[in-house]
Every structure is written in C-alpha cells, then in structure tokens.
Amino acid sequence: MATADDFKLIRDIHSTGGRRQVFGSREQKPFEDLVDLGWLKRSSVDSRATHYQITERGTSAAL
C-alpha cells in the first residue's frame, strides 16, 4: 500500500524528468518500494549506482 512519502517521492521524480540515479543500498529502499508498487522500474544497475525510470503507472500516481 502506498504511503504519503511514496506519493511525495514519485511527484519529485516526475517533476525532475522521470529518472533518478541512486548510490548506496540504504538510499535505494524508498525507490525499491516504488518498484514494488509498479511506479518505477530499474533501468540499469552498475557497481556504484542504480538507475530508476518512472513508469506510466508512476506518472498517473504523480498527477
């Protein structure tokens, strides 16, 4: 179930172009929650960072 923080984060991601790069596993937790909701997808993972991209469902949630 989505929380107020989830909606705040997806709106922030949407307003800044729909993509986010995250460093460190602790910082990934809120983004992984949005992946579980179907609002974000992991577009790539490298040794230092994970890249996320907003989905259509995420765009709808952000509006």
Rank of each mutant, 00 (worst) to 15 (best):
M1H: 13
M1W: 11
M1V: 13
T3Y: 05
T3L: 05
A4F: 10
D5F: 08
D5Y: 08
D6G: 05
D6F: 06
F7R: 05
F7Q: 04
F7K: 04
K8Y: 08
K8S: 08
L9W: 03
L9H: 03
I10C: 02
R11K: 11
R11M: 11
D12H: 09
D12V: 08
I13V: 07
I13F: 03
I13Q: 00
I13Y: 00
H14D: 03
S15E: 12
S15L: 13
S15P: 01
T16V: 06
G17H: 05
G17D: 06
G17M: 05
G17S: 05
G17N: 07
G18E: 02
R19P: 03
Q21E: 15
Q21W: 15
V22R: 03
V22E: 03
F23C: 15
F23T: 14
F23I: 15
F23E: 14
F23Q: 14
G24C: 11
G24K: 09
S25E: 15
S25Q: 12
S25K: 13
S25C: 12
R26G: 14
R26Q: 15
R26E: 15
R26T: 15
R26D: 15
E27S: 11
E27H: 10
Q28S: 09
P30M: 07
P30T: 05
F31K: 00
F31A: 02
F31G: 00
F31C: 04
F31Q: 01
E32A: 08
L34G: 01
V35Y: 03
V35M: 06
V35A: 04
D36Q: 12
D36T: 13
D36L: 14
D36V: 14
D36W: 09
D36N: 13
G38I: 02
G38V: 02
G38R: 04
G38D: 04
W39H: 01
L40A: 03
L40N: 00
L40G: 00
L40E: 01
S43I: 15
S44I: 13
S44D: 09
V45E: 08
D46G: 09
D46Y: 03
S47C: 11
T50I: 14
T50K: 07
H51K: 08
H51V: 15
H51Y: 13
Y52H: 01
Y52R: 01
Q53V: 14
I54C: 02
I54S: 02
T55A: 02
T55F: 00
E56C: 10
E56Q: 10
R57I: 13
G58S: 01
S60W: 14
A61H: 04
A61S: 04
A61R: 03
A62G: 03
L63H: 11
L63I: 11
L63E: 08
